[in-house]
Each structure stands twice: as C-alpha cells, then as structure tokens.
Simulated assay, not measured.
Amino acid sequence: MTFGTYHGHISKTLRAIVYGAAVGDALGVPYECMERGTFECAGMVGGGAHGMPAGTFSDDTSLLLATCDSIGACGGIDVDDMRSRFRAWLYEGAYTADGRAFGVGNATAAALRQGFGCDGERSNGNGSLMRIAPLALTDVTDDEVRAVSAITHAHPVSTESCVFFVRVLRDVLEGRGLEGAVGRNIPADERFAFLEGIQELPRDEIRSTGYVLDTLGAALWCACNTGSYGECVTKAVNLGGDSDTAACVAGALAAALYGYDSIPRLWLDQLRGKEIVERCLT
C-alpha cells in the first residue's frame, strides 16, 4: 500500500494537500496565540511569538511531512517508523526549514518521550489532526488511521477526529460536496454533534483553540463559508488563537477542494523549506 492505491493522479493530489497545509500553516505562524480581531492576515509576514522569517512552517507541516516520508519509505503504515521520524523532528530538527523544532505541543512531546500516545481527556490537542491528511490518499482502514493518531494522541476524541477528517477528504476528492461529506461522516459520539450544520454557525460561535474539536470545527467552517483556497486559509488565520494549525487543516481541505493551482503563486514562492517538502513527495 502506497499513495498510489487510493485516488487517481495521486502525485498531483498529494502535492496539493501537502502544499495547501504548509502554506496555511506558514501564514498562521506569526499570529499564533493572538486574539481575534486584533490583527488581519492578508499574506506572508514574519515575526510573531516565534520570531520566524516570513514563510516558515511549524510543527504542523513538519509532522505531516514526516508522515508522508514514512508512508513512502515503508510502502504503508508503520507506526514505529513514523514515531522514529517524529522523534528525529523533535530532537534533531528533521523536516524543518531551520534545523530546529518549534511550536511543540505538550502531548506530542510527552508521547514521543515515553514511546506511546497520551490518552487522557486533557490530552486532546490538535497534534494528530494537523498531520493526518495524507492518509486520505491511501487505502488505510479506520483502525490504521486511529493507530497513526495514537502515536501521540490516543484518546477517542482525537482518534475519531482523525478518522472523520480522512473520510471527509476522501469524499471531497471523489467529487462529493463538502457539506454532504461532513453530514455523512459525523461520528455517533455526541461530542461531535456540533458538526451537523457547522457551516451555518456565526463566526462568534467558532472557537479556534488548540483543542482538536475546535480546530476541526474551525477548519470545516472556513471551508464551507469561502469559495477559494486563499479566502479559506486567511479566514482560518484570522480566527486567531491556534491560527497556524487551524489554517494548516483548513489549507489541506481547501487544496483538496480547489487543487494545487488554486494556491496563490506568491505564497508558494515565499514558502521556506520547499526542498524538504519536495524530498518527502518523491
């Protein structure tokens, strides 16, 4: 099983999703932790809490790239190999533009230190959702998606968020409408019930924190209420809070909807670390 087994024209589609996520992530990095309404993102800038140059992607994209690299190298899902690559990112700066990891989530760091995912109720950050999109382009089972999430985030809220997002991406890539894809795939767990009609909620009811369900809802809301890649990711960044991860997840979804060519060329040109991205796509 490789990236070739699920969807036609796989290389182009994978490229779109990976770059869609990376560009959204980089747009959001300078605004991470900023309060909604105190800024307006319109393009790539530097600075912010991490003080990074414009176009720098965060841990979100690094771990997504490590996921791609592992699947390509192993020809399928090997959670031990993925964990090893995640550790190389954390401890050696692999898959980063500057040779060092930044923006590391607490649950992710703890899981990689201890060798198994965190499964407490309070360990439901968005650290597995942000890297799960490439699995939509394989024929992995729901249980394999759960296992990949559980490398770092093993609680059912996190694992089922990942299963849901992979299913939605697959439906979108098959040409089914986004709103229908959301409705068809909502887990039975009542904690996911808010996703029914998510597109109709007012902006003030959309939360953009590090909690996985907030990130999932924010990304879906942005994609449902915009008509282009650029609109979607800037809308996600401008929600504030965990702006880079919201835009990373929204960016993967928007790129699945609109394709690689929908990503503004200027933003692609400004993205740092493209040689790392390309290495993980070949």
Rank of each mutant, 00 (worst) to 15 (best):
F3N: 05
V166K: 10
R203Y: 07
D80P: 00
E200R: 15
P156N: 13
G4M: 09
G180P: 00
G175K: 10
Y31H: 10
L239H: 06
E179R: 12
C74E: 15
D204K: 13
M1W: 08
R146M: 12
A246N: 14
Y229V: 03
D261P: 01
V166F: 09
A218T: 00
D269Y: 04
I276N: 03
I263A: 00
E205T: 05
P53S: 14
T108S: 14
G127W: 01
R83L: 09
D269W: 02
G28E: 02
T234I: 01
S70R: 08
L266N: 10
D143T: 05
A21T: 12
D69Y: 14
I186N: 09
F57Q: 06
H155M: 10
A16D: 08
V18H: 09
R203S: 11
R100V: 00
P30G: 07
F116N: 07
E200F: 15
I198E: 12
R184W: 01
M130D: 01
M1R: 14
C232H: 02
T226R: 14
F3W: 08
A49K: 15
A154P: 06
Y229P: 02
M1Q: 09
G227E: 13
L112W: 07
S262L: 01
Q114K: 13
M34F: 12
I17G: 09
L201A: 15
A150K: 12
L90D: 04
R131H: 06
F164M: 04
F39Y: 12
F192T: 04
V29H: 12
T13V: 14
T152P: 00
T282I: 08
D78V: 07
G99N: 02
N238F: 03
V212R: 13
L239F: 08
V45H: 08
A107I: 08
I132L: 02
S128D: 04
C224T: 11
A109T: 02
S62H: 01
H50C: 07
K274D: 05
F3Y: 08
C224W: 04
G259N: 07
G99K: 05
F3L: 02
G8T: 14
R272F: 06
A42T: 15
V18T: 10
T108R: 11
E278P: 10
G117Y: 09
E144C: 07
D204T: 13
R279W: 13
G251C: 06
T209V: 02
C232I: 00
R184Q: 05
I71T: 07
G240E: 13
A16W: 11
L169V: 09
Y31C: 03
G241W: 09
C222K: 04
A21W: 01
M52W: 11
D242P: 06
P187Q: 06
V148T: 10
A109N: 09
